[in-house]
Design a protein around this nucleic acid. Sequence first.
DNA 1: TCTGGGGTCCTAGGACCC
DNA 2: TCTGGGGTCCTAGGACCC
Length: 421
Amino acid sequence: MFALVDCNNFYASCERVFRPDLNGKPVVVLSNNDGCVISRSTEAKAIGIPMGIPAYQVEDLFKQHQVHIFSANFPLYGDMSNRVMDILGNFTPNMEIYSIDEAFLRLEGLNSEDLKRQVTVIYKKVYKWTNIPTSIGVAPTKALSKVAAHIAKKFPKKTNYIYIIQTEEQRIKALKWIKIEEVWGIGLRFAKRLKAEGINTGYDFTQMSRHWVRKHMSVTGLRLQQDLQGIPTLDLESVQAKKNIATTRTFEKNYTNYDDVKERVTTFAVACAEKLRKQHSTCSSITVFISTNRERKDLPQYRRSFYIQLPFATHSNIEVAHFAVLALEKIFKPGYYYKRAGVIVHELAPDDSCQKSLFENRDEKQIPLMQAIDKLNATYGQQKVRLGSQDLDRIWKMKQERLSPGYTTKISDIITVHCRE
DNA sequence: TCTGGGGTCCTAGGACCC
DNA sequence: TCTGGGGTCCTAGGACCC
């Protein structure tokens, strides 16, 4: 059986761990730049704040209900996630960390009663040790465990956040209940097309012809269909090395000037190079993209990306930035209001197996130079040493007006507990 | 005025090989 | 006038996830 453990309202719950005074009150977490709502407590959902909505559009609701608002604090969420995953890992070695707030566990050799008992222990231990509430769905396949977790979350009073699909009857009942657009792997587009075919529930989808599914939804859709039919098709996936690393940002304002965009792209390239060095990898190709604000229908739109194959593998700030700027030169067109840009590095390889190019002409000093830069930045704070082509005055222009402390990741932010005698 | 960021997989079609 | 068959690799674009 597969168990999907899914943290409830994860980011909002993380904020509340250290602010127990906010229990029972509406809490939301905003994306970078304090742009959109990306996590909502149950209370915030109840007052009608939609997921993903731009914050300015719900300002009245915020005021009216005294919603507690937080800027995204990813170091905190990442650390809380590690704590939850460590606990889950103690229950079984067969685990797949699926996202920051979800993990699949394979539970073997338990009868129906023991299974229920074991899952309850998991729920309680995670809650007691981290204060993060979860929903747990259990079923014979991964896709069905997702459905089960959905039910657990939707009916907390009936389920106590735990739901198990074991019999064929339960499987069919659950699938007939779940709307097609809520099924894992069915996004906006496919839901629309499926509804046009008269498919409204997960159950309807399992009854479709394999031929149609294969033709319109590729093998991915076929695998999902089988998994929902109760035939184990999707298995736990082992952690594999990342294939890409990206640094992309929406700007706090529109940029029209080439030099401004170039500075941003340089900084994103440096960030990618730093991420590469941190995991001891190099890259051999990069993509740079720029884009205007696609929400502004009144302005001319322009989006392009450019891919460059590098002549050698590298993780040097200088080299990655150099090629990123070459790519930018290919696609930058004056006259547009740019709102977003990014650098993505591909073809990652371990940095010790760095292959020498036939036409090797790279500067061997890059490696000790980068080591020195990393050391200085580690000692004197992030971004003390930068490239001359980066904005030296810029500290961090991201809007983060309501950032919570780094309770678990920053020594100066650790909370003090006062005990009365 | 203000709309996130970082990933994955699959397919079709073009270029190229023998 | 007649023009093969079987591959691989690469990339853009489309779909999805949290």
